[in-house]
């Protein structure tokens, strides 16, 4: 049997913030083309875990290995492999969608930025608004543009922090379609979400993070439907 290629490996990750232990030895593996969802109650350390993985925070202990390479603060090449979609859009409100994508494209050293940006704007349904400053955009439109921003550099790992928040049904379907397309071409996805329906629809496996520790993991298959998953999560959280 062919061994699965590990894209992201987190070993015993710890993070102390203001003398408080936020992450207590988190260990995870994400294979190539796999979608792993991380769920957990508020304040469990999910966002801190993401920030450490992306390189925004320096871990207090442990290792983060991306595609076989240990991620360090200055490892720009490794960070290029990661596409990070956070709570906020990271977009400049005085710039147009095209200008925003051009700017990030230059930072990510994307080749033929203009054609790529135009193609992505068509994919996310914002091509008609490409020259309009985004300050007038709705939350859904901003999220669509954020998705285009993340896809611009063709990342090998997508890290999505509650990506469905504030999206209408069309945008949710579009986002899910893009995630599945990316999965099919071998992109690995790490997803943080409170939306169990979307987790069920997208993820291959799910991990529960509570008080900075992974307390349980489970593969998502036909046996674990939405109701069973919710029960499993409630049990894991109350026992963990």
């Amino acid at each position: 049997m062919k061994e699965l290629e590990i894209m992201l490996e987190i070993k015993n990750l710890t993070k102390i913030l203001s003398d408080k232990l936020i992450l207590r030895g988190v260990s995870l593996k994400l294979n190539k083309g796999e979608i792993l969802a991380v769920v957990g109650p508020n304040g469990a350390g999910k966002s801190t875990f993401f920030k450490c993985t992306v390189g925004l925070l320096q871990p207090s202990g442990g290792e983060i290995i991306v595609d076989g390479e240990i991620i360090k603060k200055k490892s720009a090449a490794t960070r290029k492999k990661i596409g990070f979609l956070g709570h906020e859009s990271f977009l400049y409100s005085t710039l147009t969608p095209l200008e925003n994508l051009r700017f990030y494209g230059k930072l990510y050293k994307v080749k033929s930025i203009d054609s790529k940006a135009n193609q992505l704007l068509k994919e996310v349904g914002l091509h008609l608004f490409k020259d309009v400053p985004i300050r007038s955009f709705s939350r859904g439109m901003l999220q669509r543009l954020s998705i285009a921003r993340v896809m611009l550099a063709d990342p090998e790992i997508l890290m999505l922090d509650e990506p469905h928040t504030g999206l209408d049904q069309d945008a949710v379907s579009l986002l899910n379609m893009i995630i599945k397309e990316k999965k099919n071409i071998g992109t690995s996805v790490l997803l943080i979400s409170h939306d169990f329906e979307q987790v069920q629809a997208l993820a291959d496996s799910v991990a529960v993070l509570k008080k900075g520790k992974i307390i349980d993991t489970a593969p998502l298959n036909a046996d674990l439907n939405l109701e069973k998953m919710k029960d499993w999560y409630s049990r894991a959280v109350s026992e963990g």
């Binding site: 925004l56 603060k73 960070r79 956070g86 990271f90 977009l91 400049y92 409100s93 990030y104 901003l142």
Partner: peptide, 16 residues
Amino acid sequence: LENNCLTGLRSAPIDV
């Protein structure tokens, strides 16, 4: 700080 653009810059593959 608007739309947390600074985090966008920091997560980009550039030297800080």
